[in-house]
């Protein structure tokens, strides 16, 4: 417990601005991925070893296009935002431009995600 870091519930309050939104989304997407990957691993284990119905059904849900659209958004966001955090942490001089970095991050994310989602929907609607 080297760090004193009790943000408390006050920390959840939206203070405005892109960086705060990115911070909140980074947490939410990270927790969502922990939940998803953890359940997916356990479900895969159960499916592989016992072939039970609930695990198979859970994995079928995970495979559906709409679920994948959500997961891919979370992964892309977490990856790009994490890259921004790493860069700014390792070169603290760049922290001055963190607002611009946040804009740049969305400028990368929106076309990347849009293209991926478009191709996925084309496959889904094109029917193989």
């Amino acid at each position: 417990m080297a760090l004193k870091r009790n943000v408390g519930l006050k920390g959840m309050k939206y203070r405005g601005g892109g960086p705060m939104l990115a911070w909140a989304l980074h947490r939410i997407s990270g927790l969502a991925m922990v939940l998803f990957v953890g359940m997916h691993i356990v479900a895969s284990f159960v499916m592989q070893q016992f072939g039970s119905d609930w695990a198979t059904n859970l994995n079928i849900i995970y495979e559906s296009t709409y679920f994948q659209l959500i997961i891919i958004f979370l992964v892309y966001f977490h990856a790009i935002n994490g890259m921004r955090i790493i860069l700014l942490d390792f070169w603290p001089k760049l922290l001055e431009y963190q607002r611009e970095a946040t804009w740049l991050q969305w400028m990368l994310l929106i076309p990347m995600y849009g293209l991926t989602a478009m191709v996925m929907m084309l496959i889904k609607l094109g029917g193989e």
Partner: peptide, 10 residues
């Protein structure tokens, strides 16, 4: 003439 299945690729 088809796309890669992005979900499977991921």
């Amino acid at each position: 003439n088809s796309f890669v299945d992005i979900g499977a690729l991921a």
